[in-house]
């Protein structure tokens, strides 16, 4: 969040007051480089190959492609192919939201860190763009930032249209899928926009249930927080407990398929399967 805010400020207007130990970490994560300021410390080359992904600025899809291609080798995920797929999926979906909806000329920032004691990867994506409420309100009613976040997490809700099938480019399902991945894996998912943060808590009553309404999930909400103009998302992926991504897809597909077929039967409308060859 500091990096995405700092992108909007000229380097000569930035001053830092960071304790020496944190300064070293932030240097390695590329915070000072992103802000265009000197950290005053030297890092040896081999230290940059730790299990973290330094801050990447993403303004266009090609930059996102480049950032994502670095993530699997940087986090040494070659032994975790399923988790690598899940991670790539999540980052693509959330970072693409930044490019499409934030409308920030500065783009957004992505970084990730591996925590060996918990065998967990924490991913952070933040922008200082329009924020969720502004974009959702273009097509839906949302009085508060919490209502807007709730809508953004529901499937089929996008700020670009109020039609149920979305637009050619948007279905309004990216955040819902991402939150669902965290839910099934019993990981944290956190989203902050305006003065409000929603946190999905890791222990759910029924793990393999995915409600459309994010407020049915076990969660916490914080309101009255310092105002954040854009959107910030954090998600954990615990490598030991990551359910195969295919199981999530099986589950979502089954629920959806049954609901759509039932609706089609009621309305005597045909249902077609895609053809795989």
């Amino acid at each position: 969040m500091i990096a995405s805010l700092g992108l909007t400020v000229r380097p000569e207007n930035i001053t830092t007051n960071i304790e020496a130990r944190s300064r070293h970490y932030f240097e390695r994560m590329g915070l000072f480089k992103t802000l265009g300021i000197e950290s005053g410390i030297q890092i040896q080359e081999h230290e940059s190959s730790g299990r973290f992904v330094p801050i990447s600025v993403v303004r266009v899809e090609d930059e996102l492609d480049r950032a994502i291609k670095n993530i699997v080798p940087m986090l040494h995920l070659s032994g975790y192919p399923e988790q690598a797929k899940t991670l790539m999926y999540i980052i693509y979906e959330i970072a693409r939201n930044v490019i499409e909806h934030a409308e920030s000329k500065y783009g957004g920032v992505i970084c990730a860190q591996y925590y060996p004691d918990k065998n967990k990867i924490r991913v952070g994506i933040a922008d200082y763009g329009l924020g969720i409420r502004t974009t959702i309100k273009r097509s839906h009613h949302a009085e508060t930032h919490l209502e807007a976040i709730g809508l953004a997490l529901r499937p089929g809700i996008t700020g670009t249209t109020n039609k149920p099938t979305g637009t050619a480019q948007n279905a309004g399902a990216g955040l819902f899928f991402t939150k669902s991945i965290a839910r099934i894996n019993e990981d944290y998912f956190w989203i902050y926009s305006g003065d409000t943060a929603y946190k999905l808590l890791p222990k759910q009553k029924e793990r393999m249930t995915i409600p459309a309404d994010p407020f049915i999930d076990r969660h916490s909400v914080s309101t009255g927080l310092p105002y954040w103009k854009g959107t910030a998302v954090g998600i954990d992926i615990t490598l030991d407990q990551t359910v195969q991504f295919q199981l999530l897809l099986d589950y979502l597909g089954k629920i959806l398929d049954e609901a759509v077929r039932e609706r089609k039967r009621e309305r005597k409308l045909p249902f077609k399967e895609p053809r795989f060859i």
Binding site: G156, T165, A173, Q246, D257, K264
Partner: peptide, 21 residues
């Protein structure tokens, strides 16, 4: 398999919405 499942999901929800239209 995971790509095929995503294609099924998209074709399913598109059909649901097209019914509404």
């Amino acid at each position: 398999p995971n790509v095929a499942k995503i294609i099924r999901i998209v074709t399913s929800y598109m059909q649901a919405g097209l019914g509404d239209d």
